[in-house]
Design a protein around this nucleic acid. Sequence first.
DNA 1: TAAGCGAACTTGTTCAAACAAGCTAGGCCC
DNA 2: GGGCCTAGCTTGTTTGAACAAGTTCGCTTA
Lengths: 251, 251
Amino acid sequence: MTARYARIAAELRDAITRGGYAVGAQLPSEAELAARFAVSRGTVRQAVAVLAAEGLVGSRQGARRIVLGRERSQSFAELHSFAQWARAAGHRAGGRVLAQRRRGASAVEAARLALRPGEPVLSVLRLRSLEGEPVLLERTVYAGWIAPAVERLDADCESVTRALHDGAGLVLAYGEHFIDAVAAGTEDARLLAVRRGSPLLRQRRVTTTPEGRPVEWSDDRYRAGSVTFSIRNSVDANPLVRQVGDLRPAR
Amino acid sequence: MTARYARIAAELRDAITRGGYAVGAQLPSEAELAARFAVSRGTVRQAVAVLAAEGLVGSRQGARRIVLGRERSQSFAELHSFAQWARAAGHRAGGRVLAQRRRGASAVEAARLALRPGEPVLSVLRLRSLEGEPVLLERTVYAGWIAPAVERLDADCESVTRALHDGAGLVLAYGEHFIDAVAAGTEDARLLAVRRGSPLLRQRRVTTTPEGRPVEWSDDRYRAGSVTFSIRNSVDANPLVRQVGDLRPAR
DNA sequence: TAAGCGAACTTGTTCAAACAAGCTAGGCCC
DNA sequence: GGGCCTAGCTTGTTTGAACAAGTTCGCTTA
């Protein structure tokens, strides 16, 4: 039983996505929507706030809300799981574990995973493919407490996120992402079938549970041209941050 | 005179940024905050919703809110203006126009700027530097209606955004960004002082006014290592989207 | 005709209240 | 001691009301 405002948001989102409202068109007024859905204005405002956060609509005091874009954003799960994202987008995803071993956390890893340096972590190297083409090289470090569940997985497990959810009841809730470009190293080049030094899109990320407990710290490298990240922002909602040089804890 | 909830959000944000609340620590309950600031619970909820949208705090029904991170996100202006961002970050930014000419919009440009192909646009090539080092190559296409104001600017105008705001009253409100990695072309390599084929972080973006009118479509290329983008997301707020291959209108 | 004014409309902010739903911790029972 | 269960706390959802502030557009006036 989802909330009322969520259903209204979904209905409006559908209408926008299907083209019921053109980009630049005006949305009905809050009073109108409140009457149409038989709810209070507060509930309508919550619904449109969802769409505003998604970047689909913009608003100015005094003027009707306008439609900014038509594309729906992905769910959190789709962004954090390569396999779930690929399936939702209608692509055939593959992947397999190339190396996996336990070791002590480095200083950077410890900082990211809220551990002390040297505490046990599980390091995994995965190669993932799209439509049969190798596209993404994942170097993931899992916190020790989740390591046993990861080790139980098949080497060619398609969706790690899904497997950990079903098998260990692990729920991911928050993520922080750092995006930049790097040159392919020797190992990168060999596994992704590109020349050494060719451009890769790097996404480093830390993912945590609903309680704020870090689960994994990953360095994902995409072959240039295979993947694009997109963000929509506004004066009110500005999720994107630009930083100079490397991350402070470096490398 | 800012709104009450905005001031409360600012005060809490400051407390988090200054380390008054450690990462993982609990925030006071809504009732407690309402009493402390002498406002209703609704106003407190609006304030913490701001922090949640910024990715600073997370929340679960039934449990106290927790602090997820300490870094404040940038203002919209800082993200859209290289100069304003650099100054706010304490860096010395430079820049100058290398080429500028009027021409007709290509199909892609017309689509992005909500024009018809062939309508007049202003194409500008700018090289920007950080601490004296060339770092960013901007290929920007301005919609015809703003072109005269852009042409009036000095070739070494430091902040174009600021100049257009002060001079033409232009306010930017929304942006859409596409981030990927590309290899440096011949021109890129020469101007950024890197080898041809070396990795660049590419950010293509379209910026619009509060009325939803597109102003500029820009292709910005950063030298690898000079800049990192970061995003914090959650199950509730997921601004980041991953897309396959190139943008649909290609190029 | 063009500038200016104002009325009607629309979104923004805030309050108070009530109930739903999920979490935590302490107490109770075995 | 260990497991279960409930009472109380905390966040989530919704309503209704009122006023503030900005926009739009038609009408009036110079």
